[in-house]
Design a protein around this nucleic acid. Sequence first.
DNA 1: TTCAAATAGGACTAAAATAGTCCTCTTTTC
DNA 2: GAAAAGAGGACTATTTTAGTCCTATTTGAA
Lengths: 153, 153
Amino acid sequence: MLRISRLTDYGTLVLAQLSREGDCPTSAAEVASATGIGLPTVSKLLRLLAKADVVRSTRGARGGYRLARPASRISAAEVIDALEGPVSITECSAHGSHCDLEAVCNVGSAWQRINLAIRRALSDVTLNDLQRANAPVPRFEFAGMPIHVERDR
Amino acid sequence: MLRISRLTDYGTLVLAQLSREGDCPTSAAEVASATGIGLPTVSKLLRLLAKADVVRSTRGARGGYRLARPASRISAAEVIDALEGPVSITECSAHGSHCDLEAVCNVGSAWQRINLAIRRALSDVTLNDLQRANAPVPRFEFAGMPIHVERDR
DNA sequence: TTCAAATAGGACTAAAATAGTCCTCTTTTC
DNA sequence: GAAAAGAGGACTATTTTAGTCCTATTTGAA
């Protein structure tokens, strides 16, 4: 349930690698060999991330990619949006209210609120957190109420 | 991103309908006609939900389905687990730690913790919450633009 | 000034997950 | 015993996702 795509998962590895490389442009090929992910796939990921301004590209010889800003200012939500598109938790909620079952459907809005809660949480998790193994578990809220979340287990 | 499947969405409609019917067994056909979802699909959903003990079935003539307990004690997480299987946010985290990139992968645990937090949030949302239709529908926006996505059908 | 190293972008294919349908069997009521 | 229901599984079609490849463009440096 609620799974991020494999590509997004790879995306975080790629970004983590760029983060390690610091500010000088790193080529897709270097990232590929450092992460073990195939070059065509890495290239595709980096292109998508560049389009979303999560990374910046430099073309030409000695070119490559680097993070568009520090890892502490890149959120998990941005990465997911860049790689999967900003879609919502249910299909119909993404269209406003265009769905065949509209007349009888009355459950939409709670899913939307759940979605919002999840997005908010993902916005609070940065690439830095994703890299650091022991960051605190994010706090979730639903309908304005904090939802209690356990610490590690 | 992070979308529940259409079947799960339908599942909540089906459950909402059963909840409205109260405690007497309601046939899949009745649910289908009340919700506008196809009968074969409704049957499949109810069978899965019965297997997970979210609904209880009565066989034979005048049989049907009813909720296994009050709507306030059925969580969104249970419904998702029943219809999509209990999987995690990333592929590798679902298998323990079997992934080709294991040696170079150091981002796993934060996703796992995000996953835990999301599950926790979904466990706190009940079918009752999902049915209550009116709460202000938050306009969903990203980077200032309302998000819509996805093709029409 | 030309070559090689890069990214940009899109088209395409293959594989996997999802959705939906259908058929047959069993259980139960009337 | 007939009809109304669920159980279960097999199957097909569709959609999504992943991954590859080709060509064009940009840039640095010999």
